[in-house]
Design a protein around this nucleic acid. Sequence first.
DNA 1: ATGAAAGCGCTAACAG
DNA 2: CTGTTAGCGCTTTCAT
Lengths: 337, 337
Amino acid sequence: MAGIKDVARAAGVSVATVSRALSGRGNVSPSALAAVQQAAHDLGYVVSSTASGLASGRTRNIGVLVPVINHWFYASVLEGICTALMREGYDTTLYQLTKDPAQRHQIFSDFLQRQRVDAVIAVNVELSETEVVALHALDKPLVGVGGPLPGVPTLQVDDEAVSALGTAHLLSLGHTRVGYIGGSSETDVDFRVPSHRRIGYERALAEAGIDLDEALCVGADFTMAQGYTVAKQLLGNPDARPTAIFAASDEMAIGAILAARDLGMQLPRELSVVGVDDHELAEFFGLTTIRQLPHEQGELAVAMLLRAIRKEEPARAHTLGHELIVRNSTSRPPADH
Amino acid sequence: MAGIKDVARAAGVSVATVSRALSGRGNVSPSALAAVQQAAHDLGYVVSSTASGLASGRTRNIGVLVPVINHWFYASVLEGICTALMREGYDTTLYQLTKDPAQRHQIFSDFLQRQRVDAVIAVNVELSETEVVALHALDKPLVGVGGPLPGVPTLQVDDEAVSALGTAHLLSLGHTRVGYIGGSSETDVDFRVPSHRRIGYERALAEAGIDLDEALCVGADFTMAQGYTVAKQLLGNPDARPTAIFAASDEMAIGAILAARDLGMQLPRELSVVGVDDHELAEFFGLTTIRQLPHEQGELAVAMLLRAIRKEEPARAHTLGHELIVRNSTSRPPADH
DNA sequence: ATGAAAGCGCTAACAG
DNA sequence: CTGTTAGCGCTTTCAT
C-alpha cells in the first residue's frame, strides 16, 4: 500500500507538498500539483484517514443519530444525509439510539467520544438532559432534524401550520364535521409533534368558527393498523359521524381509507381524508396530503453542518417548507338530506 | 480532553500498561487493571479511535454497502447490522451505492481505501467485475447478504425453495390455476432473485403435475402499485382467471389483494394470495406469506464477520431459513359449478 | 507483569 | 512556493 512518501518520491517533491496538493490547503504550484496528482493516481494512493485524522483533528466523518432506521421518514432523511455527505467526500456513521439506557450510555460516553466524528446530526431523537450535555460537551457542530433539542439548531416543519392547512383544505370544501386522528399519549412524548398538529387542527376549526367536538378526535400510534382501527370507531358512530378526517400521518390516513372502504363507504363522496407526509404509498391510494420532503431535509442538514464545520457561519434553526398535494381522497361533503 | 498519559499518571503505571489494560491485550495484574479502569473512569478517558487505529491498524468500524436505504428490506437488514455491531463496540459506516458510476467509483477508489473500515458487508448490491476486484483488493473480511457476489461468502435465502413452498401451499389447498407475479426483465437484473422465484413456482407446479400457463405469469417491479396493476390484468381475464396468486413480494401481493377488492371479489373465498417477506404490513392485510427475517440476517452477517476479523474462522456462505406464515388471504378455491 | 521507546502515516509550523 | 521536522495519541516490540 503506497504511502505519502512514495508519492513524494515519485512526484519529486516533499511529503509536505504532497499533503498540501492533495488536501488543497496551502499553496502549491500548478506544476507540483499536477505531478503529485499524477503520481498519486499512478500509485493508487489514498490518504489514510486514521493518520490524517490523528494529525489534523479532522476525520471527514459525520455521526448520525436516529431512533429507528426501518421507517419511511427516518430512512428518507438518512438517505438524504448520506447522499449529501458522500458528495462532499464525507463518511456517514450511523448510531441507532434505542430506548435501552445501557446502549444509549455507550453511544454518548464511548462512541461519540472516540474522536471519530467531526460533527453530529440528530434526527428526531429525544434526549435526556445529560445526553444533551454530553452532546454539547463534544464541542462539535451539531444539527437537529425534526425534533427540537435544547440549544441545538434544528430544521423543522411547522407542524401546527401543516395541520392547520390540511384541516383548512377540508373546511374550505364545505366540511363541518372533520375528525382528527393524532398521536396517542404514548407517542405524544416524541417531541410534541402530535400535539402541535392537534393545535393546528383546532386553530383551523376556530378560524372557521366551528366548535371542537372531542368525540371526533382520536389517538393512534401513527401506523396504518391503528389508523384503521380508530377510524372505524369514528365512522361507526351512528349519530356523530364525520364527513372528513384529518390524520396526522399518511399511514394512519391510509388506514382510515381502508376502514371506510370496509364499511362500504364511497371515497371521497362519503368521506374525505387528508394525511401528512406524502408517504411513498400516498399516491397509490390517491391520498390528499401535506407533503414534507425528508430527503431534502437531510440534504439541508448536511449543508448547514458543513458550513459550520468550515466556520463559514454557525448553524441556525430553520423552518422547512410543506405543500398541500390534492389527490382523490378529498371532495365536497355529501349534500345534506 | 484526557489522554492516555493522564490516565497512566493517575493510575501510577506506564502508558503501555494502560493500553494493555483497556484493550484487554496482553497481561495486566488485577491491581493495575483496577487502578487503570478507575483512573480512566474518573478522567472520562476514551481511547482516540484515530490514534488507536493508526497505531494498531484496527478501526473498530465496519463499512456497509447498500443499494437503497429507504426500503423495508434494506432498512431492516441495516438495523440488524447496526444493532449487532454496536453491541460489539463497532461503528457502522454507511455507503449507499447508487447507479451513478462516478459515485460508485468514488466509493471503491476513495472511501473504502481510506483505511477507515476493518471489514465490509455488502447488502444485495450488484457489483461490476472491477468493483469486486477492488473489494477483494482491500484484503479485509467481506460478507454479502442477499445477493451472491463472486468470491464473497454470502448469506442468502433459498429463493427457489421459498416460492416452491408458497406455491405448494396454494396447490395443497386445491388450487389448480395459480397465477404468478414476479419481477420484470428490468428488476431481473438484480441477482436473479425473481427468476429463482419463478423457477420455484414452476417446480411446485410440475411436482403437482400441473402445466405451466404463461398467461398466468406477469412481471412487476416489486411495488404495491405495480402489483395492483398487473393483478387487475390477471383477474380481469374472463376465461383464464386464476383462483390464486403467488407474488414474489408482499408489497406486490398486497397490491393484488387491493386489486381483487376493487374488482369486488371476496378474499380468500374467490381468490387466495401468497406473498414473500412478511413485510410490516403483511399482518395488517392478513396476508399469508413466506417470512424471511432481514433483521436477523443483518445480525448473522455481523457475527460471521466478527469471527473472520478475530481469525476464529473464515466467513462461509450460508443459507438462511424461511417460514410459511398462514393468515387470512388463503383458503380452498371456490367450488366449481 | 511492566516500562521505555520506536513507530503508525500524516499535517502544520517554521524556516527558507 | 517548498522542504524539514516535530508532533498527533496510541500500540507494540523488546527488555527487564
